[in-house]
Design a protein around this nucleic acid. Structure first.
Lengths: 227, 227
DNA sequence: CGGTAAGTGTTACTTGAGGTAACGGTTACT
DNA sequence: AGTAACCGTTACCTCAAGTAACACTTACCG
């Protein structure tokens, strides 16, 4: 009896990993189906792509939006794998900005279909449910707001604007990225450079207006030149 | 016989204005229905809101997306009525920027439900069809790009960045607006000011980097101080 | 080994919203 | 009087999401 106390039954545990794997498998199938049949695939299509019939799908996902949510989360992973390091890395400001921007652009460049599927329409059913895209944007914006706020406070400046700033930056990069993804009229490097320039100038101007002189080639450390 | 030559039949003309009016009426009903029953209203709901049964709706709109498209166009009108003048007006740069931004924010502030319905999900059916939101953003961005490009050329600067700049600005204001609309943690004035400041600094930095000194309180006219 | 919990899979159904058919009434131009 | 354009209805069709019911497999448990 002593050992039954811990786990009620090992049969329940046996599949733990398997279910995860299966879900992932279906997520991949969905991505493949989207690539093949456009962004408005049905559950039947997805099931077929996975070589399976609908009810099997419904054993792993409660409904369509659950599946699509999982696809969104997979996309989030892809994005964060590259954005995370870029956001965390330190270094010369200007280069740091460009790296973050370029990390984002590289992800959407490599997964345009997935990106469009997740971001643009498609997520047919989700009234007020979880919106992965919104969450990602908020996550990134929050991180940026923290970074910006820290610096502003370090310079003894009002940090109240950090949040709108952060959301503005996120929207800026996203929309420019959308535009670029549709009509690719310039290289990614070029766009990263343009965007980083805009952002750097905006930051520089903000600091200047508070009497701070920053060097784009140096890490952003408090260094007040004017008082 | 002479007069029948001109118009095939006056009966066809009789309704011309009427149909327009009726469509507008249904568009209003849709907006009302959305306000009442959330963003995922069905055709039945809309028809009921208009005090009519489904087939009547389908005499005026080919399908759901046609109706929603019309709603989008109505929203575009509301937006452009205010953005147009702001974009066209001349004046001190900094103030001009702020006016444009504030025009946008005022519209979404006054029609939050309509805004969310049109922009966020909901437009359930429209695979690759007309996307009103995208069109509006492109229209505004194109206008901005023209303005920016003209100025850059006037200063003998490279105007190749005008387009990405424009799209970046549009995304910036939109996303900051979204954020603000959800959690209204600051006044509209305040946000307009923040955003205008960012934009002004970015422009100023761009000009500086080309050796041009601009005065935010003056209209943006070519005036090279450094060469 | 028999029992059973979890998972594999199928076909055939129900449901609900988008959209249509078919019918009848009204107005006012010709 | 005839008819072109609308108004409006109820009852239906269609198609994709989601479910019911049924049958087979694996492997832990006692």
């Amino acid at each position: 009896m002593a050992r039954t106390v811990k786990g009620p039954d090992a049969r329940r545990e046996r599949w733990k990993g398997h279910r995860e794997q299966r879900r992932a498998e279906f997520v991949e199938a969905t991505i493949a189906a989207v690539a093949k049949k456009g962004p408005d695939v049905g559950m039947e299509d997805v099931a077929a792509e996975a070589g399976v019939s609908k009810p099997v799908l419904y054993r792993h996902f409660t409904d369509k939006s659950d599946l699509y949510l999982a696809v969104g989360q997979r996309a989030t992973e892809l994005l964060m794998d590259r954005m995370g390091p870029a956001l965390a890395a330190d270094g010369p400001i200007r280069a740091r900005i460009e790296r973050i921007v370029d990390a984002y652009l590289s992800v959407i460049e490599e997964n345009p279909n997935l990106y469009r599927f997740v971001v643009k329409g498609s997520f047919v059913d989700r009234p007020v449910e979880k919106d992965v895209v919104q969450e990602d944007k908020n996550l990134i914006a929050t991180t940026l707001a923290r970074i910006l706020g820290d610096y502003l406070r370090a310079f003894d400046m009002d940090s109240g604007g950090a949040e709108p700033w952060a959301h503005a930056l996120v929207g800026m990069v996203q929309n420019a990225g959308d535009w670029w993804l549709d009509r690719q009229t310039m290289s990614r490097e070029n766009l990263s450079d343009y965007l980083a320039t805009i952002i750097w100038h905006a930051i520089d101007g903000l600091l200047r207006s508070a009497g701070v002189q920053a060097d784009p080639a140096k890490p952003l450390t408090p260094l007040r030149l004017v008082d």
